[in-house]
Design a protein around this nucleic acid. Structure first.
Length: 580
RNA sequence: GCCCCGGUAGCUCAGCUGGAUAGAGCAACUGCCUCCUAAGCAGUAGGUCAGCCGUUCGAAUCGGCUCCGGGGUACCA
């Protein structure tokens, strides 16, 4: 599709330039002014060239220009038509359909992939949970964005490493530990039958309640942190136990949602990194020691204030560690890009981090990128852990899953699906992921619990439903249709052409999503294909077409739809189900 | 105060490298299951694209100002 577009643009441009030549008009800026669009309706053609920009040069009205160019290009017979000031091109459809079917055949599952990122090493950091509580809705957005971007980039050829920096140390971790010592009664997740990360999270909540009554609580947590840093055996032992509880639970949630990592970093192992680098920067004069004793960077160059990189007591702050980990990651695996999937509230942090690395003389500092995404809010406003409005990840998926199961039963489809509970779970994950990916990453979004539980309309389950229908269609195709020859020329309906176009453009869509790190582009594209197919499926007999040849040809198109949707599902981490 | 992001239908969101009547879904109303899965399809209704000014043949899209909302501006992460 892309090459056809380029070919036509070239032809239109050269006609314009020739016309300018004979009229003695300067055509230098022409290639810049010539833009390609799409007519509002595919009946009008497939490419459109507005001619307004050339009216002044030629001293002719755009429609007249369009007429002249159309004549030069061969007119209606060549697929060139004039609609007012627009020159519309209708491309050779039978040939395009034919080529699409061949392409789909040869790409198979890899339809949508490409190679413009081949040879690039890209590290994607996302999730970054704390080991004092279970994952919540905010993490789910982060996880699916990271996972999906990683898959999209990989499909365009990049060598991708997904990494997770687990925040497993600090005062907040000590708080749940302290609560366990005080109120845990020696219980365990097993003894209470509670998911292990929830068990730890409940203790964290317990601490907060206790701290409200007892002013010494925070001090005690601080003391425990010191003991932890000093390597106190007992504290370390408890820490290990509770961290494992938290991580086991968190991993179970990752497994549920299909999120995975190639490498896990733990802050307990990295939190001392970076200090040396800061001291080196101090020696070289890039950084300075403030009169209060802290080591700082001055960011006046970029219109920012100063930032502390080492406390006056010589200890590290969060950013010190980030400096260190970035440096060691680049040493271990010299990436061409490192993408941090982190909420927009940390934009300032990353500006400082990137600037500091650049000042410290690391030439790869410009390869760092913060994929900043908006917050997930509730209709009533921000989620607040203190008010208990934080939406727990497992709870949410549980609710979605049981609703989906109810739906399967109500529709009497229990016997048609493989395994009803498993199918329900896949529907739940699809609903969730699609809901979160639909919105542009940069934007804040509102999570309305009721609406998000819907399975109708523009939702993940709708997409799954279309896939299930095509799967069924193909699985049930009679032998006569299977063995009949495919003839692309028979696919001459307008809806067939519209589908062809959408499917043909899919690889370009993936490419754009990769470039912009925006899976919502893909989500929108998949919905469009599903909707177009749904209409087609409703209006046109496919397997039951009037003759086997036509049926086979339509089946081939349906197969192309299936391949495309399945491929898109993988990229968006939406589970595929054959029957629902 | 300063910096960043947003303001499009009642609600949730697309569209924003300027181009032909601004699109979906939900909610409302109306039709369609002897016909490949009705988690579907079709239709009706719903919009000063926050406001003003500017650039342009042409602005939801670009620029400026104003208003409203969110985030940030820690020796927290």
């Amino acid at each position: 599709m892309k090459d056809i577009k380029a070919m036509w643009t070239g032809r239109v441009l050269s006609v314009l330039e020739n016309m300018a030549g004979t009229a003695g008009i300067d055509s230098k800026g022409f290639s810049k002014s010539l833009s390609v669009g799409k007519p509002p309706d595919s009946n009008m053609g497939d490419l459109s060239y507005p001619l307004f920009p050339f009216a002044k040069d030629f001293k002719k009205a755009p429609p007249a220009l369009a007429g002249e160019i159309a004549g030069e290009l061969g007119g209606e017979e060549a697929g060139v038509s004039v609609a007012g000031p627009y020159l519309n091109i209708r491309i050779d459809r039978a040939a395009a359909i034919s080529r699409l079917l061949e392409n789909i055949e040869s790409f198979g599952d890899k339809w949508g992939s490409g190679d413009e990122l081949t040879g690039r090493k890209v590290m994607v950091e996302f999730s970054s949970p704390n080991t004092n509580k279970p994952l919540h809705l905010g993490h789910l957005r982060n996880d699916i964005l990271g996972e999906s971007c990683a898959r999209i980039i990989a499909s365009r050829g990049a060598d991708v490493q997904k990494v997770n920096l687990v925040n497993d140390r600090g005062v907040h971790i000590c708080k749940s530990m302290l609560a366990y010592q005080k109120f845990g009664n020696g219980e365990s997740p097993e003894s209470l039958g509670v998911k292990s990360d929830r068990f730890v999270g409940d203790l964290y909540v317990k601490f907060s309640q206790w701290a409200k009554e007892d002013k010494s609580a925070d001090g005690q947590a601080q003391t425990m942190l010191q003991a932890w840093e000093a390597g106190d055996e007992e504290v370390r032992k408890l820490w290990l136990t509770m961290n494992n509880w938290a991580l086991d639970g968190i991993n179970a949630t990752y497994e549920r949602t299909g999120v995975s990592f190639d490498r896990i970093y733990r802050e307990s192992e990295t939190y001392l990194m970076g200090k040396d680098e800061v001291l080196k920067g101090l020696d070289s004069g890039v950084l300075y020691k403030d009169k209060d004793g802290s080591v700082r960077i001055d960011m006046e160059d970029i219109g920012l204030d100063t930032k502390v990189l080492l406390r006056s007591d010589g200890t590290s702050v969060y950013i010190t560690q980030d400096l260190g980990t970035a440096i060691s990651r680049h040493e271990e695996w010299p990436f061409d890009q490192l993408i941090y999937v982190v909420g927009s509230e940390q934009e300032y942090h990353f500006r400082v981090l990137f600037y500091t690395l650049q000042k410290l003389g690391f030439p790869w500092a410009d390869k760092l990128r913060h994929l900043s995404y908006g917050m997930v809010n509730l209709p009533e406003g921000r989620m607040k852990s203190r008010e208990g409005t934080v939406v727990d990840a497992d709870d949410l998926i549980d609710r979605l899953s049981s609703l989906a199961l109810k739906e399967i039963k109500e529709k009497g489809r229990e016997n048609d699906v493989d395994d009803a509970p498993a199918t329900a779970e896949k529907i739940a994950v699809a609903a969730l992921h699609y809901f979160l990916l639909q919105v542009s990453p940069t934007k804040d979004m509102i999570f309305n619990p009721e609406e998000s539980l819907a399975f109708n309309g523009n939702t993940g389950p709708y997409l799954q439903y279309m896939v299930a229908r095509v799967s069924g269609l193909i699985a049930k195709a009679p032998e006569a249709v299977r063995s009949a020859a495919v003839n692309p020329a028979l696919l001459d309906r307008r809806d067939e052409w519209d589908l062809t176009r959408l499917i043909s453009e899919f690889p370009e869509l993936v490419s754009r999503a990769a470039e912009k790190l925006d899976p919502s582009i893909l989500a929108a594209g998949l919905y469009e294909i599903a909707r177009e197919f749904s209409r087609y499926y409703h209006d046109v007999p496919i397997a039951k077409a009037e003759n086997p040849e036509l049926a086979a040809s339509r089946m081939a198109l349906a197969g192309a739809v299936l391949t495309t949707l399945k491929s898109g599902f993988r990229l968006l981490n939406i589970p595929y189900i054959e029957s629902m």
